[in-house]
Design a protein around this nucleic acid. Sequence first.
DNA 1: CATGAAACTCGGATTCGGTA
DNA 2: TACCGAATCCGAGTTTCATG
Length: 340
Amino acid sequence: MSSGAKQTNNSASPGKSSIVIYRAKDGKINLDVKFERDTLWLTQKQIAYLFGTQRPAITKHLSNIFKSGELREESVGSILEHTASDGKKYNTRFYNLDAVISVGYRVNSRRATQFRIWATKTLKDYLIQGYAINQKRLSQQSEKFKELQDTIRFIRDKSGRPELSGRAQELLNIINEYSSSLTILHQYDKGTLASPRIKKPQFKLYYENSQQLIRQIKSDLLKKGEATSYFGQETGSKLKSIIGAVYQTFDRKELYAGVAGKAANLLYLIIKDHPFVDGNKRIGSLLFIYFLEKNRYLRRESGTRKIENNTMVALALLVANSQPREKDIMIKIISNLLKD
DNA sequence: CATGAAACTCGGATTCGGTA
DNA sequence: TACCGAATCCGAGTTTCATG
């Protein structure tokens, strides 16, 4: 049996990545898998494909699983927006890993047999090794965090020096601005971070809305000779899906409820997902600021901006240079900068 | 396009009944 | 009683259709 879990992450879009579940003798299986709430989610069609059977068989198994009380439909199923093969969006029911495994133990096909063998072995490995691995990972993380803290302290101590200028100074500003929330960061690392108070957005950003704004800024920049014709030119429909992602719902609740969360994700996704040929950082920052301003969330009561231009530049650079696995922490940093 | 369900097919397992 | 083939049952799959 050559089956092994293999995950390839080749897209930075939210909650979506390409995954190769396992290699069977009849070749590899490619599925676009949604990741939400620490688990994966598949449609009936995808489950059928995974196990090499037809969709109605999955429907029947699922209904038997729920009827027998093996699983509760409310806890393993969720209705999510799904872009179908015709390009349109539908509210589709997705089933999580628990449901997929339960179905896998009922389906009678060669592929399902291989899946059962793989799942049983993997689960056993997890049970035996999981504890040790988890311990190791945790201690590594806390070491990394210490390192980061030391570096920040070092840079901050030297930040008064006049010879530091330009970009370095900007980076120092951002570190200074969020150094006070290091404890928050630390709490986050330990998984105990309390969510900041959430302000509901009054203003909604639309795709057309954004395009218009980009056209405007482009013509300004062209006049000043600060942009090429590639500035703001979209590659595919990424911008549209990013805006969709920011307003994505899960269980009829918005995934990123507050203004800060939405803004942070907007900035992160535009910079990381490269929806434009040129100008991703600038447009990301622009839409970020625009979105905050329109929602009356950019300024303190005194009228000063929570994020100044130089901080904005540094923030964009920081995001651009971050690793994909650091997404959560980047979002947290941005959100915390927006706190009063 | 996606889902749920009814009606039907198929194949394996079990039960039944006749025979040596 | 032991054995074997026919009848029956049951789970899993497919086709098809109504509905959202």
